[in-house]
Design a protein around this nucleic acid. Structure first.
Lengths: 227, 227
DNA sequence: TCAACGAAAAATGAATGCAAAACGGAGCCA
DNA sequence: TGGCTCCGTTTTGCATTCATTTTTCGTTGA
């Protein structure tokens, strides 16, 4: 095991495997023999199997009876469904955020937005990507609902693998479109227009979805940016 | 073990325990010794422990390190958060349903709605309750998104215990209000007005939430209906 | 040649065993 | 009486073991 926190072995294995899968280190659909993973992680089969059950219930892996675990493969249909769930969660987060966000928080989002804009201008994709995530997380945070945050994280992690899969090739069109959408997001937030924000967030996410589906189709050939 | 399907022991235990907890057969916050449950279910500790980990990841139980499992206790704050998540999911389901629902499905909902109305008129709470659930499930179904349906089920099950807890005392005011809300729901659905439907569903659910919070406060003394 | 069969090997599902941590209560002291 | 410590018991976390199923692969026979 790599990490050595105070958490139980089980939790460490879950955290490690979740990250490992999200970061696309395991081939989708390929069988994952327990023995191999046990040796790699240095734990016995018991905590590993517990972890796999949990990940299966999270939807990250499939657990076929007597035939082991494999990374759940996402058909385009599944990807659409996951993004729709995410859109629903994020839209509601936006609505709640507009009711609850403080002026300070709005100022913080604005600051991040400007920073992201310069990253966009200077074509710094990595910085852009990170700032983008921070903005969305900040909206979630402003919604003041830990359960909602957790649910969002959960579903986000299930599609995140697709973005890792894509080698972050920059599709200029999609990127500038995403930037425009972010302008609208900020505007709605500043006006505390919950319905409008929800609407934009859904559209923003479903556009991401389209990009991710491209990735799914091209199977790692490097199309789609997932911004 | 009660059930004897072809599923693995693990899955049976998960299903049984989930239902057992949702139906409020275990005191909230009370320690659940593994040994007792094992004997009751007739399984060894391994599948039981796997099941508990899964239920913990679903948020139904708390798993304190070295101190066993207990049914997660919901503070009013938690209840609000869960209902908000549900509201977000159901609102988006409503939006999608308006885009995708067929005329036949609308007719089916209308039929159920009328049936529910007569249950309401004749004060048949049990019938009303069942029809109410069927209508909401039908909207979820019309959204055409299995993942969304699953997420909804998941979060619904986490608060369902509260309704079981309430002895279904009929609060006439809340009941007639819920019936009025259902009129609006149907109207929005017929007009396929997604935004309006989403709005009503959120309000409908947050009213349910208020009722559930009453239940939480009165701790089973029988207030709140959870309609 | 190749499809079908079958036994050996390997993987999974579940039970048991063992060490460490938490619980509980008797005894002790203020 | 009330609170503390200490020690035996119970419970939990994890490793190991056993039973069953699946997979592999060599063999056979058409």
């Amino acid at each position: 095991m790599v990490s050595e926190s105070a958490a139980s072995l089980h939790d460490e294995v879950v955290a490690f495997l979740r990250r490992y899968i999200i970061e696309d280190n395991l081939a989708e659909g390929e069988r994952i023999p327990e023995k191999i993973l046990c040796e790699q992680l240095g734990v016995s089969r018991t905590p590993l199997r517990e972890a796999l059950k949990v990940l299966a219930s999270e939807g990250l892996v499939d657990l076929l009876p007597n035939r082991g675990a494999r990374v759940r493969s996402l058909r385009p249909e599944d990807i659409r469904e996951l993004f729709e769930v995410l859109a629903g969660l994020e839209a509601h987060a936006g609505r709640l955020a507009c009711q609850r966000i403080t002026d300070e928080q709005i100022a913080a989002v604005e600051a991040l937005h400007l920073e992201m804009y310069s990253a966009f201008i200077s074509r710094d994709m990595t910085a852009y990507f990170g700032l983008n995530q921070r903005i969305h997380r900040m909206i979630l945070d402003a919604a003041g609902n830990k359960a909602l945050e957790l649910a969002h994280q959960n579903y986000a992690s299930r599609v995140q693998r697709l973005r890792f899969h894509a080698n972050r090739t920059k599709e200029w069109d999609r990127w500038s479109q995403a930037m425009r959408e972010h302008e609208l997001i900020l505007a709605a937030l500043v006006e505390r227009d919950g319905h409008r924000l929800a609407e934009i967030l859904v559209e923003h996410l479903m556009n991401k979805c389209a990009a991710a589906m491209d990735v799914g189709r091209m199977a790692g050939k490097g199309a789609g940016s997932g911004m």
